[in-house]
Design a protein around this nucleic acid. Structure first.
Lengths: 203, 203, 203, 203
DNA sequence: TATGAATGAGTATTCATTCAT
DNA sequence: CATGAATGAATACTCATTCAT
């Protein structure tokens, strides 16, 4: 879990760090950021409060690190679509992207909740962190859509609105999927999204 | 006599209540729930802290009331679609619903932010409040979709997933629209959504 | 006591402020700055911890205010020596200055201890505050000495060293006088200092 | 054999002790006692925190030891004045004492600051330590003055006050001299003090 | 109705000190 | 001798809430 971002402080120290990160992730996602005290996190690892501060500057720091790490994994799961590759049609590549995303979310339901439901509006700095990520993501998607529109793979229309629509829809689906509200497999989710993108909702 | 006096007080009292509600709405949307103190709200109305508690039980109460009132207005703006009315085809009715929603949001950007970005994950009780609303909304939409699928107006497929997708997309659009990120008029936004629902994104 | 520097917050509030200032002065002088907690100060006034923060931003603020107020009173007790006034010879004026100083100190033994023994080396900001005061004081004395040297009222020699010697001696005397170590009256103390300035120590 | 090993350890251990003492002296004089953590001291010697506690019981202990050592050296630099020695007139002996003191201070500016500016008001125990030293010093000076007064070498007057005045003045001069505020050589400083003691300040 | 002084529970954070390795 | 991870007591500070006026 939690990738292998932090390597400092030797192997022992890193283990404790990761324990704390996982405990924080679970506390935050169960009770929210504000309702979680540093002591809650420390207690969950059976460690004294002071120990927490050996590894993280403060409460925000551990949240920011959780967030940064997960946003990084999300970014890593998205691959640029190669329109020229004859062996992999664009729709296949898009589908693969969606599938990786859904599977990543499935494996980290707590982080999905933190990232999509709790993080927005927590702190100015955290919001910055998120805005930066989303701005980059939207830019990336915008360029892909523009390319697609040129090649008539994507319908004409306001791309920013399309992005909002798709991004929002996808976020909601990931959240609901992780919560178990949607009783579908990853593949079924992706297929349904693809169908929607292909034909819309109205017959 | 007493009655009259009481009513008079009631009316003035109501004015104060509304001032406080508006002040709270603006404080919350500007700085977030936790970064807003009861004193901030009271000061914005040029009233003492104690006065706040004459009108609201506590801080959560005023947020809950703001939320309930706005969710009520959202619910009120959505009209059931009458499939039998020959003078108003279903798509027209759906379009009208969306337009009312977008215009409602346009008029209350602060409440849109509070409802969609800040409220989730604030408190257990607030989450309950939201879940209840969304559950009812989803149920309502689900029934409409079911009806529409029966009559071949809506494509087959997992309705819950469709709802998540559309709801999430719509929420994101409302948020971005209120933030001014989307440089479109209400009608243009609605048209684009309708186009998406009609044909999807991929050409 | 404690002058009338703060007038804000109405009469009631000012009373509480002054109570807190006096409590802080006594706590600090009895146990030192670091060994005094905000709670100690509040308890001494039979008031809750939070009340302290209604009147002072933090612990340093109340110390800084005590110090500033007392340094102000010291400055106010020192009068420029008018060499031209035939009715009041310079020595008389110097004597009067010293007497005012000793009497001021006698009335505020706690503040003497805080200012002379505890304040130096507490905080960077506090040190600044003191340095500024002493720099101004030394400058003032230096000008007086220079004038005196011109008129042959003061012996030639390095003025900065003289100032250090006299200032240090005076501080020590004030401290010891307030502690009761010196079993003398204010007038006797002043007379002895004057004798020393006149003739030195060695016969 | 064991003895030799123990001594060897003792010698190395002593080296570490001294390194720690010097590091502590510099940390304390740079940032003050409270702003210096045990870790700061240990880090300065490139040693782990735990190592500190192999040599000193706690933080106060190392400060107390620094202080005791320096007070000891001060005491050692002061020689009893032999009034009977015809080859060395009393003023010469006094002058020599002052010169030794100023030169000692010049060589240890950090300790001068610690002893004169920081130590007073730090801890009850430390204050005791200082009071004991000063009491002994004052007693010693008092006896010398008494002797001097008997022989008409010292002016009549309250000896305790004289001591306060001279001690305070001397302390201030040593501090300012170490800070470089006084732009004089050790000899010049001593000469000025002697002139002051001889004739006072007023012409 | 309105006030605002007072409350005190709640938390983040620091750091001297210990101890297993 | 040396380490440094772990400890947890100690404290400053915030802020929702109350209540006497």
């Amino acid at each position: 879990m939690l990738g292998c971002a932090a390597v400092a402080r030797g192997i022992r120290g890193n283990k404790r760090r990761i324990e704390l990160l996982e405990a924080a992730r679970d506390c935050f996602s169960e009770h929210g950021y504000h309702a979680t005290s540093v002591d809650d996190i420390a207690k969950r690892v059976h460690v004294a409060r002071g120990t927490f501060y050996l590894y993280f500057a403060d409460k925000r720091a551990i949240f920011a690190e959780l967030l940064a790490e997960f946003l990084g994994r999300i970014a890593g799961s998205i691959q640029s679509i190669d329109l020229a590759d004859p062996s992999r049609p664009p729709r296949e590549q898009l589908r693969a992207n969606l599938l990786r995303l859904v599977e990543l979310a499935e494996g980290e339901p707590a982080m999905v909740k933190l990232t999509l439901a709790d993080a927005p509006g927590l702190t100015y700095e955290l919001d910055e962190q998120l805005q930066t990520f989303y701005a980059a993501l939207r830019l990336f998607i915008d360029e892909s859509l523009q390319e697609g529109q040129k090649m008539n793979l994507i319908r004409k229309g306001d791309r920013q609105l399309y992005i909002s629509l798709v991004l929002g829809g996808l976020q909601r689906i990931l959240l609901d999927h992780c919560r178990g509200t949607l009783a579908l497999s990853a593949v079924e989710v992706v297929d349904a999204i693809m169908a929607f993108l292909n034909e819309g909702l109205l017959a």
